[in-house]
Design a protein around this nucleic acid. Structure first.
Length: 207
DNA sequence: CAGCGGATGTGCT
DNA sequence: GCACATCCGCTGG
């Protein structure tokens, strides 16, 4: 398989399916960002979390549709970008059929293209001591890739400024699963669900 | 290294 | 008025 053949667009139908399968399938995928001016950044997804429906008490849609979470109710394969703690933008991929609120949070990526430009973006906000500090964490990767609320609802299947492309498949033996991070407000049962998935041994997975 | 407090804007109760 | 799908820098061991 040539490089060009394994790195390509997803089908829309892929994002309309089961959130956990999509989360699994996004590991190894390429997140591509084209900056105004023509610079292209690319990174491999190495850690994700699934937030699935109104019954999931960790999910933003747990209390129904609001102005903020409306993108989760929208068409699959689009971005849901929101501000947390007044400081950090977090990127999600909307999944499931339109009307069913679910999304995959991108928690960590590994730089593929434009790593030094990503480092420059991050150094405006803090000290980058190791390479992993560039994109290990959901708030960090959006800084590195210059993703903010302007990209909310972007179509990641057909988009150019921000899009997803297939990457080399990750063998099942390299997939790790565990509880989601930072959801102490959810029920014990929902906190315990192993809906965080990551590539085992990858240096860019968040701590 | 672990632990902790501050930053800082917005959504929802 | 409080909580928040986080991160940074400082403190003490």
């Amino acid at each position: 398989m040539s490089e060009i053949d394994t790195n390509r667009r997803f089908e829309r139908a892929f994002f309309a399916g089961d959130a956990l399968k999509i989360a699994r399938g996004l590991l190894g995928a390429r997140l591509v960002r084209e900056l105004p001016g023509g610079v292209q950044l690319a990174a491999k997804i190495v850690e994700v979390e699934a937030y699935i429906g109104q019954d999931d008490t960790a999910c933003h849609a747990r209390n129904g549709r609001t102005d903020r979470n409306a993108p989760m109710f929208g068409p699959p394969g689009h971005a849901y970008v929101y501000l947390i703690y007044g400081l950090y933008w977090l990127l999600n991929v909307v999944t499931g059929p339109e009307g069913f609120p679910a999304a995959i949070l991108i928690r960590a990526v590994e730089p593929i293209e434009g790593k030094e430009r990503m480092r420059t973006h991050r150094e405006k906000r803090g000290r980058v001591r190791a390479d992993r500090d560039i994109t290990a964490g959901p708030g960090r990767l959006t800084q590195a890739l210059a993703i903010d609320g302007d990209l909310n609802t972007t179509d990641l299947v057909t988009g150019s400024a921000l899009r997803l492309e297939k990457g080399a498949p990750i063998p099942e033996g390299q997939i790790a699963r565990g509880p989601r991070i930072g959801i102490g407000y959810a029920t014990e049962a929902d906190q315990a669900r192993p809906w965080r998935l990551w590539i085992a041994e990858n240096a860019y997975v968040s701590k």
